[in-house]
Design a protein around this nucleic acid. Sequence first.
DNA 1: TACAATATCGGAAACGTTTCCGAAAATTTA
DNA 2: TAAATTTTCGGAAACGTTTCCGATATTGTA
Lengths: 348, 348
Amino acid sequence: MKHTTIKDVAKRLNVSISSVSRAFNDKYDIKKETKELILKTAEEMGYHPNPIAQKLSQKKTFNIGIVVPEFVNEYYSEIIIGIQEVFISNGYQVLIMQSDEDAVQELANVKTLIHNMVDGLIIAPTVESNNMSFYLKQYQNGYPIVFMGRVEESLPASKVLFDNKKWSFFATEHLLRQQYTKIYHLSGYKNLSVSNDRIQGFLKAMDKHRIPKANYKVIEGGLQAKDGIAIIEDLIYNNDLPDAFFCFNDLVAFGVIKRLKSQGFRVPEDIAVMGFTETQMAELNTPQLSSVKQPTFEMGKKTADLLLQLIDKGPDQPETIILNGELNIRESSVNEKFADSSLLFQNK
Amino acid sequence: MKHTTIKDVAKRLNVSISSVSRAFNDKYDIKKETKELILKTAEEMGYHPNPIAQKLSQKKTFNIGIVVPEFVNEYYSEIIIGIQEVFISNGYQVLIMQSDEDAVQELANVKTLIHNMVDGLIIAPTVESNNMSFYLKQYQNGYPIVFMGRVEESLPASKVLFDNKKWSFFATEHLLRQQYTKIYHLSGYKNLSVSNDRIQGFLKAMDKHRIPKANYKVIEGGLQAKDGIAIIEDLIYNNDLPDAFFCFNDLVAFGVIKRLKSQGFRVPEDIAVMGFTETQMAELNTPQLSSVKQPTFEMGKKTADLLLQLIDKGPDQPETIILNGELNIRESSVNEKFADSSLLFQNK
DNA sequence: TACAATATCGGAAACGTTTCCGAAAATTTA
DNA sequence: TAAATTTTCGGAAACGTTTCCGATATTGTA
């Protein structure tokens, strides 16, 4: 319970406190033999420098903070794992907090972390985050912050994004090439930049392929399976079903598929479905779900690299990293009338 | 960037440092008006006590650590959310580390957290954890530690467990009452106490219903969908398929269902499947998966309560909390020959 | 051998708090 | 009004480090 301190080691060897300190951070002058002796006895005595005292003295905590909306879904969990890998191997501890998709909680989390003097912050803002001005102020004051995911590309700060527009375009185009001509996009909340990007990609594909406006639609909804179910029920009620659904994420897609099946529709024979942000359930589902895989692990690592650089070298020109994904076509979006159609579209 | 300190506030008001400190921790003598004045100007100056300095002075960090095997699956994520809720509302920060199912990494994590002087630890040991003696030593030295999940009931320390044996028994009995008579249990690694408990529950049900030994089997395997798939392939190869599978978890069950379906079997008409540790995908799957729901959120809260008590009141008699679950019967385990069979078994 | 240059080390301040101790001020009591 | 009590506060040590500064010991140079 009582930790042995630097003083204990110094006393034991009749050397000064500073010498022991020097032995541990070998950037100061110390004789090789003394250093080794000190390290050896310190080891024997079970001495470890007290991180709290080090932090106070060094004005550096070797802690960084992550604030994510949630980590029940695989998406953020995997990103966090990527972040941790980088920081832990650089001697940092990673504090994780979740805002539960609540902007108030998110701001509180960020403040808590700042008061705890984390050396840097990674923020994945929540849906309706109007806290950006506070974060930006901190950033402009020199506080190392890197943003992730749900932020505008125009944000004047370093950030790691997924190219939602491009991959939404690819996903939509895939559906079109499968000869599905009436396609509805179940979008996320429209105040999410991610949603808008995906809508734009969707519309761009429609535009390119000259699909008449009557044949496509963007429907705003939530991020859960139940939201997908609710929309399908609406559409069934209004007798307004398309050939294919392009969903905001896999969970919504699973909801859609479930509800369609319970209504007697076959997927993809009657109606095709695509997801986004691939989950491990995609290939376990019946039918296997086509989806866009995001490079979560890599996103985490890139974000961490950016922050580490910001911490070590100080503020610099904001850098924006935009990552690409992978289009994984599975059963749920393959039109049987085109035998080798799965080959029509190659990942890029 | 430069934080305002207690000195700045003291200087501004021409009071002593101790008075400012007293104003913030109102356990010492201070006149009401001075206190209010100090708090007001501190607020204006944007002063916040530096947690690092507080920790050094108080010998308390107000941090607790959690070490889990992983948090990609919902199980630990949800438990962590429960833990966080309790601790954050008590003014603690929660440091989360994951061992990635690796005992070496797990030990390193625990040591890191201890060196960082967390006030307490929650450990969910990994599969092949032979670190228990180290943890127990710390615990016996008075370090507040609470264990969770994968530990033996006999462990002489406070812990929160799920009653695996009982709910495995219930799940198995449900299958038996559905008139499935040849049932295989796909178990997790046998060196996991959790696996053994579930095996025992399974065997107990077999025993109670006097099922001949030839009609049931326990097959050891992994925790992933692919492990379920591999086992099914083996069984198909050996032409050794039962009426029903009782799987270690939902993921394995999803793998099993997928492989059975791809072989042309119908679930549950030909073969029934049960999962365990319910996931949100259970009711989205086709067929909907029967499973045992674990009270993850509550487990987190109970564990946190136990640790908080240990921190506040010091060592005491070890307490073991064993929680109950819920049997959620869905399509995958209902024998159609018994119309109202889903009512045969009620949760308890 | 004497001096300069360098390598090594101890002392002490600093980081920002809490908290003990005692002194001054305010209040109560006689 | 003086003494006794209680409130309120300032000073300073302590928490365990890092790091600057200067002192001493060692080595090299002429």
